[in-house]
Simulated scan of single mutants.
Amino acid sequence: MRIALNARILQAPRTGIGQYVAALAMALGETPGLQLELFLGWTWSARLPEAALPGYSRWADAAKRVPGAYRIRRWLEQSAFDKGLTPRGVELYHEPTLWPLEFEGPMVMTLHDLTHVHYPQTQPRDRLAEIERRVGKGVERSRCVLTDSQHVAEEIRRHFALPADRVTVAPLGCAPRFHPRSAEAIAAPLQPLELVPGQYLICVGTLEPRKNLTLALKAYALLPERVRAHLPLVIVGMPGWRDETLNETLRKAVASGQVRLLGYQSDESLARLLAGARALLFPSLYEGFGLPVLEAMASGVPVVLTRTSSLPEVAGEAGVYVNAEDPQEMSIAIQRLVDDESFWQRCRALGLERAGAFSWQRCARITSDVYRKVLEG
């Protein structure tokens, strides 16, 4: 099988979908009888790029202000894509984002979530219209739609009126870098950030409304001063869609000196930060999967999270669940993980066991089975 995987997203710093593309490509590379051809936007490659393009974020921000820049880039990408198909003998095209390219042969699409349906207000109007048009067209063309969770699979079937056999769930995996680490192993790397292993809380995710970060900030503020004085809250993630309520709450929290914004972190830095945390706070309102939850559990770190969308599929009985609108309940859950060592150890053990059920090899196996089914059918 010769499969074209659109990996253009790897030009940008890797967040959720970028991590998915990179990890899936690596796992698919170990599949017998499968030749993966990666389309990187302008060029083709059989190997993953080691890092994002230098200065990509600045270039992308500048391009948004140029009239017609999107259409020009799209035309250039489609041209480069078309030129590379024939010499590579591509049999099937896999699109892992919301922006499928044109392809005359069989196509598979991964639809990670329906955020644009549930939270349309987080997108500029013209971008939302383009997303709706391209996603709908991509789903219609796809022989099979892959997704990360049963929750989203059911949403996709209802929203697009698809039969059950057109949607396949391929749960995500966890990179080997996410594993328990001793305090001695991470003390030195954390020192420049003025963090001590086991003595901070962490939130991970793009700063946007659906991540519900305000809940975590309010819950943290309700903790006793003695706790906050020795247990800072660090927030890791790139800026997302504008939300004035979050911005104001975040500004006040950071001004207190007890909440720290670390911004985007490299893969290894994030793995160390997660492994050193007392707990991950994940108050999201909607997730297609919730990869940081899995990564925290694999690192031996308990997770306080909401029982929304796909999250219970990931955390199972290992999660400490709270109401998505109740800061007091989240604060009490955090306090228990801080004060009750036996409860913390129990959550840690359950999380490690739960994380063992997920792997990128399993995700790749399900994905490659879909490829075969599509090509044979």
Rank of each mutant, 00 (worst) to 15 (best):
A12E: 15
A12W: 10
P13N: 09
P13H: 07
P13F: 03
P13Q: 09
P13I: 05
R14F: 06
R14S: 14
R14I: 10
R14T: 13
R14E: 14
R14K: 10
T15N: 07
T15A: 11
G16K: 00
G16Y: 02
G16H: 00
G16R: 01
G16E: 00
I17W: 08
I17D: 11
I17V: 15
I17E: 07
I17R: 12
G18N: 06
G18M: 00
Q19P: 05
Q19N: 12
Q19W: 04
Q19R: 14
Y20F: 11
Y20K: 01
V21Y: 04
V21T: 11
V21I: 11
A22E: 12
A22F: 09
A22C: 10
A23K: 12
A23C: 13
L24C: 15
M26V: 11
M26S: 15
M26T: 14
M26I: 08
M26H: 10
A27Q: 13
A27Y: 04
G29K: 05
G29Q: 12
G29T: 11
G29F: 08
G29R: 07
G29Y: 06
E30I: 06
E30D: 12
T31H: 14
T31P: 08
T31D: 13
T31Q: 15
T31Y: 10
T31A: 15
P32K: 04
P32M: 08
G33E: 12
G33A: 11
L34D: 10
Q35T: 12
L36R: 00
L36E: 02
L36W: 01
L36A: 04
L36S: 04
E37F: 04
E37I: 05
E37T: 07
E37W: 05
L38E: 06
F39V: 02
F39N: 01
F39E: 03
L40G: 01
G41C: 06
W42Q: 03
W42M: 00
W42D: 03
T43D: 04
T43Q: 03
